[in-house]
Design a protein around this nucleic acid. Structure first.
Length: 395
DNA sequence: CCTCCACCGGAACTTACGGAGT
DNA sequence: ACTCCGTAAGTTCCGGTGGAGG
């Protein structure tokens, strides 16, 4: 038995494919960021004041996913910080992971060395502690808020407003904010006061084109993979596939990494184009699997109802889904949620990409949502079957 | 041209929970 | 022991609506 493990370990240790896998990790920040020189210079020009111990202007950065916003910001800040570690500190918070005002403030306090309970305090109290912590740092603090859109959409711009005003009540330290967002329309939803304060400087990150992506992949592959393992064709394919999705560099790197892993598993010496295609489906499958598996129970039931309902190949309405869902809960002897809630769950499933739901007007027959599965029925059932609470309730 | 269906979707409120502060 | 707080999930209430059919 243990020889199986030995085998696996041996394969990892002397991988015929990878030289140094860590360079392909999604959160790895390389020493150079090709094709982002303009953005690095522009952001550097703004933030360089921190090196003199002065607070830079607030910056607002937009750009689609995988255009290097996060990488460039981290790159600029850590390089500046290396030259003047005693002049300023910077804090990076991802507002998608910490998607409540409480957690964002808690994160900031923690990275600045403060301690704060996981829950239990009022946001007002947390805000007070944040001010104290920042003041104790006694220098310029640059606050990077990544994926701000997630926070704003759910909790509004209250926190942002407070943060932009925090300087007023500080004696020694100063705070500058770098806001990063994928959503270009976000600014319109902001309070004008926040808008003018945060948008002192704005910067746009354009997507990479296929040629640039190819170059990025080539550089990365040359350090991450062994020589001759990844051909130019494979790289072009990854670049082309990712360029089709608005030039997302992260996606391109993921494709290449997973393709490499597949080749490795198969014991091959080189990565081929077919591995890239396999990687594409594998990435998608894994994502779906995670999404469905972590769904709240009633969302799973609603999804199951949609699967059941779409047997006869026609689209469903919210009312029909609700009926089937009611049947399921009755079978299980559970309370059911209201139709209002089911309507929201349908929207959530739509956003996750498991189904497509679009509002349609059927005149006399009302206005409803047309709901269709956008993932293979069998693979959904497979994942749902992993939940033992759902065992044996469908045919 | 008007009606009226079958929902949509915003907003305020509830409940349960984990945890702090005092 | 008691009060206060934030979060997540859900409920209640309700005004809104595009277009097929009369």
């Amino acid at each position: 038995m243990s020889d199986i493990i030995d085998n696996i370990i041996a394969r990892v240790q002397v991988s015929p494919i990878f030289r140094s896998r860590e360079y392909m990790r999604p959160d790895y920040v390389p020493d150079e960021l090709p094709h982002r020189e303009t953005q690095i210079r522009a952001l550097g020009d703004i933030l360089v004041h921190a090196v003199k111990g002065e607070a830079p202007s607030n910056v607002f950065i937009y750009g689609l996913t995988g255009t290097g916003k996060t990488a460039v910001t981290k790159f600029v800040l850590s390089n500046l910080h290396r030259r003047a570690p005693d002049k300023f500190s910077f804090v990076y918070v991802n507002a998608r992971q910490s998607d409540t005002p409480y957690r964002v403030m808690a994160d900031v306090i923690e990275t600045l060395g403060g301690k704060v309970p996981f829950t239990g305090l009022s946001t007002a109290e947390l805000h007070r502690r944040l001010q104290r912590t920042v003041n104790d740092v006694r220098k310029v603090v640059i606050l990077v808020l990544d994926e701000l859109d997630a926070l704003i959409k759910r909790h509004g711009d209250e926190l942002l407003y407070r943060l932009t005003r925090i300087n007023v009540e500080l004696s020694v330290s100063r705070v500058s904010i770098v806001g990063i967002t994928n959503d270009v329309t976000l600014v319109d939803e902001l309070d004008p006061r926040v808008k003018s304060s945060l948008g002192e400087v704005e910067q746009v990150f354009p997507p990479y084109n296929a040629v640039e992506l190819e170059d990025i992949l080539k550089r990365r592959a040359s350090v991450a993979f062994k020589l001759g393992v990844v051909s130019d064709e494979v790289i072009s394919l990854c670049a082309a596939l990712a360029a089709r999705e608005h030039g997302d560099a992260r996606r391109a790197l993921d494709l290449l990494r997973v393709a490499g892993e597949i080749a490795e598993r198969e014991g091959k010496q080189v990565v081929r184009q077919e591995h890239v295609y396999q990687a594409r489906t594998e990435i998608e499958r894994d994502r779906m699997h995670d999404v469905i598996q972590t769904l709240p129970f009633h969302s799973k039931l609603v999804l199951l109802s949609i699967v059941e309902g779409s047997k006869r190949d026609r689209s469903l309405t919210t009312g029909e889904v609700f009926e089937i869902y009611r049947g399921l809960t009755r079978k299980l002897g559970l309370e059911s949620v209201t139709q209002r809630r089911v309507s929201d769950i349908v929207n959530e499933l739509d956003m996750l990409g498991v189904i497509t739901a679009s509002v349609v007007n059927r005149g006399r027959y009302g206005k409803t949502k047309e709901i269709k599965l956008s993932v293979d029925r069998k693979s959904i059932l497979e994942v749902l079957n992993e939940d033992e609470r759902l065992h044996g309730i469908w045919s």
